[in-house]
Design a protein around this nucleic acid. Structure first.
Length: 498
RNA sequence: GCCCCCGUCGUCUAGCCCGGUCUAGGACACCGCCCUUUCAAGGCGGAGAUCGCGGGUUCAAAUCCCGCCGGGGGCGCCA
């Protein structure tokens, strides 16, 4: 109670968690934690048509996955429960009654058709549409009569004439609106359900939210909300409107731009730490310029006044790079290995057919072996999804030659390839032990004895051992799979040549 | 149409509030070289922004003022 900072994230469960909303959640989280305050999760499901419980669950799961923690919410409760707006209708009703009683709101019996006509007319005359105020001054008797007749009605907020609303946005600075730019707006629908602009105010006030941090698309709603705060006698919180995230074509990021949900990135093998880090840097930058930051470092450095106020284009290339940094530099080996394994277990279906097979093999191998492979290839894959492709040579012995590999064999001629591989195999067999450090030495011997360029020998051996013309260092591969596997593969390759 | 927000390399941004140290710094992407059996990673270097445009103010402007242009968001019984 009475914490100095309380923020909230209030998604509506009409789809998966969108990157833009995720960033809003992150900023609310960072801000709250930086100030030792609380974050409240509230579900805005007043739109019964579009809200779905499964989306709510998905959003909660994605938020948790990202590493965001809240102190009160529908899943954990709290002293301001319930946290789903659909369960708070009684509360809203009380405040609607209060507004009605005090004259701040009134019942409007206009039909959708009438309103549509008003809108048309305004458009034709080239002036901005505003509700005419037709029902503004109905007498109590008229209202009673209409109600008795069973006429449906909405409740509208009575907007005072000519008021200028000024507020100091934490990001935008001083913002002014003239209340005449919008007419008396609806706060309760004809089906009795209250509308967003009204319920946010009631909830934010009752939940003692001190800082409302949300997307810039809500900026023009703010004056309406301030009017309601005032009418209800609630203290007005501080507002901070985040610049929105744009797609490559500089329009608001949406499905058209491809993957825009947190979940999609998860399926694509992104790490939550990387996504959190990246999203934090969209419109905000730490003073010391450090880009790779843990959650704790982000919390420590986060300062809302450093938020850039121009919209930011979502640059997936950089996210991709950053994910790679987390894979090769940030996570410790066991952690990384665990994540690779978990990913393959859970999201195998998102891999190519070929990679799915590789994934199965990987999952069948002992943990230590997989970890060893991960340590050897971690600087060459950028998403978890790419691991099977990169690690394939370590796991698959019955491979086919890629077109490039095929071409290479034709180029050196199958005869010479056979010579190289046979001689190499012979040498390996004659050795007591054969490890990564021997690989190069023996290859050079072979090149010398056959009077061939070392490069050609190496490439041929690569094809013989992996079926590919490029990939991990062969000494690392040999180290991991061991002498016997090398012999098996070389023999198999020779048999393939026949 | 009306209201509001925004405008530094292709992109994310530092600097702008408190004019000079900015011949505008960093990161991603791009190009080259090095390392290397290949790819990747890594190291080094390069190219890339007359700070949207035009006027002022000033000895001096990315930084202050004005106008314009451009981009975006909002104008619902959606949130």
């Amino acid at each position: 109670m009475g914490k100095e900072v309380r923020t909230r994230f209030a998604p509506s469960p009409t789809g998966w968690l969108h990157l833009g909303n995720a960033r809003t959640a992150i900023f609310n989280y960072l801000f709250a934690r930086h100030h030792g305050g609380d974050l409240i999760l509230r579900i805005e499901d007043t739109d019964r048509e579009r809200s779905k419980r499964e989306y709510e669950e998905a959003i909660i799961e994605d938020l948790k996955w990202l590493g965001i923690e809240w102190d009160e919410g529908p899943d954990i409760g709290g002293e301001h429960a319930p946290y789903r707006q659909s369960e708070r209708f009684d509360i809203y009703k009380k405040y609607v009654d209060e507004l009605l009683e005090k004259g701040y709101a009134y019942r409007c019996f206009c039909t959708p058709e009438e309103l549509e006509a008003e809108r048309e007319k305004a458009k034709k005359e080239g002036r901005p549409y505003r509700y005419s105020g037709k029902c503004r001054n109905l007498t109590p008797e008229q209202v009673e009569e209409y109600i008795k007749q069973g006429k449906p009605y909405v409740v509208r907020f009575r907007v005072p004439d000519g008021r200028e609303i000024v507020f100091n946005d934490l990001i935008k600075g001083e913002v002014k609106f003239n209340v005449n730019d919008f007419g008396d707006f609806v706060i309760v629908r004809s089906d009795g359900s209250p509308v967003y602009n009204f319920v946010v105010v009631v909830d934010d006030a009752l939940m003692e939210i001190t800082h409302v941090i949300r997307g810039e698309d809500h900026l023009s709603n703010t004056p309406k909300q301030i009017l309601i705060y005032e009418a209800l006698g609630f203290p007005i919180p501080k507002f901070a409107h985040l610049p929105i995230i744009l797609g490559e074509d500089r329009s608001k990021l949406s499905k058209r731009h491809g993957a825009v949900s947190v979940r999609q990135y998860r399926f694509d093998g992104y790490l939550p730490e990387a996504l959190l880090n990246f999203l934090s840097l969209l419109g905000w930058y730490p003073k010391d310029g450090k880009e790779i930051l843990s959650k704790e470092e982000l919390i420590e450095r986060f300062d809302i006044s450093d938020i850039h106020n121009a919209p930011a284009v979502f640059n997936k290339e950089k996210l991709y790079w950053m994910n790679g940094v987390y894979i090769r530099e940030v996570l410790d080996l066991d952690d990384l290995t665990r994540r690779v394994l978990d990913y393959l277990k859970q999201y195998r279906e998102y891999l190519d057919k070929k990679d799915q097979k590789v994934a199965e093999i990987i999952l069948s191998k002992p943990y230590e072996f997989v970890r060893d492979v991960v340590s050897k290839v971690r600087d060459s894959f950028f998403t978890l999804k790419e691991f099977p492709k990169r690690a394939k040579p370590f796991f698959v012995e019955e491979f086919e030659l890629t077109p490039d590999a095929e071409k290479h064999i034709q180029k050196v001629t199958p005869e010479v390839a056979k010579q190289i591989v046979s001689l190499y195999l012979e040498k390996v067999k004659s050795m007591e032990t054969f490890g990564g450090e021997d690989f190069k030495k023996v290859a050079k011997e072979v090149a010398k004895e056959l009077k061939l360029k070392p490069g050609m020998v190496f490439k041929t051996l690569r094809v013989a051992l992996t079926g590919e013309t490029q990939g991990v260092s062969l000494d690392l591969l040999v180290d991991a799979i061991g002498k016997e596997a090398v012999e098996r593969r070389l023999e198999r390759f020779l048999s393939l040549l026949k």
